[in-house]
Write a protein that binds this DNA or RNA. Structure first.
Lengths: 148, 148
DNA sequence: GACAAATACATTGATATCAATATTATTTAA
DNA sequence: TTAAATAATATTGATATCAATGTATTTGTC
């Protein structure tokens, strides 16, 4: 008695062609590879670039504000900060107003590392945006934001 | 002599508002969380669901065809297969026609696990697609494909 | 047929991701 | 004014991701 439940191949094709989660993960992997490669000479991954850029503020950031901006779990941020702190690019200090909280900021060498990478980000991003017909970059960003 | 190179805050705002890599990674995290939560009762993550679905073919798949479909590094696939093989959901055998290669297929219990999750995928995906105005799902998929 | 090049996959090491849980500090309610 | 609830972050464990590198096999060339 083989009571195997088969998934119809049409369902496989449906998922392959329509699943927004799959399509976004796929694009995320491809873009991560592209930006990681471009940023490698600066010792940064795409995620580290985004994280450090989000710390480039007039006032130190809280962890919560960064996780909200990056749509990232708090434990992921804790882990992601470690290699950056180890390299002396990010400062993490307790907030004197609330000793549970942390204040995150770039060190001068962190600012320098980030600044060095910005021109390459601009080039890489411009090349990417060129792949989309005029104005479709904004459209894509709006569509992606609706999925959050 | 403080020769610190500052990144202008306007650049930070530019990256935050325009970087397609950041926007896609952010959406990828949010969608992964949503689908992971929905699929948790079936013991599957979003990535495992996509991977197993891509193995649901009439003939066994090669690793190369799966990495191309998922836009995933080969080493990632090797790693991702391990927990699925351990659970007895996926079979990995050498290809007799080319002993370097592997033939990947779902086991009966893997097919059953996948089949059990399909209705929840449908519900979760339908709810997601509703967030986008009519037809914009197709538009978004097309735009994402242009980034690959 | 021998051998160099190319191909397919595995391993290692580092970072990324999140659930579950723990710790510490603050806030709220009795 | 405490004790309970809440909040902010850290730790652990599992999977995900890819670069660098290694191994086995096949292919192409002479």
């Amino acid at each position: 008695m083989s009571n195997t439940v088969q998934v119809p191949f049409e369902t496989t094709l449906l998922v392959r062609d329509t699943c927004l989660c799959l399509h976004v993960q796929r694009a995320a992997r491809a873009l991560a590879r592209r930006f990681d490669e471009a940023l490698r000479p600066f010792g940064l991954t795409n995620g580290q670039f985004s994280l450090m850029m989000s710390l480039n503020r007039p006032m130190p950031a809280s962890m919560g504000s960064v996780t909200a901006l990056l749509a990232m779990d708090q434990t992921t941020l804790t882990a992601a900060l470690k290699p950056l702190e180890r390299r002396g690019w990010v400062n993490i200090v307790p907030n004197p107003k609330d000793r549970r909280a942390r204040l995150l900021s770039l060190t001068p060498s962190g600012q320098a590392a980030l600044a060095a990478a910005v021109p390459t980000w601009k080039l890489t991003h411009a090349a990417l945006e060129e792949r989309l017909p005029d104005g479709n970059g904004d459209r894509l960003r709006r569509d992606l934001a609706m999925l959050l």
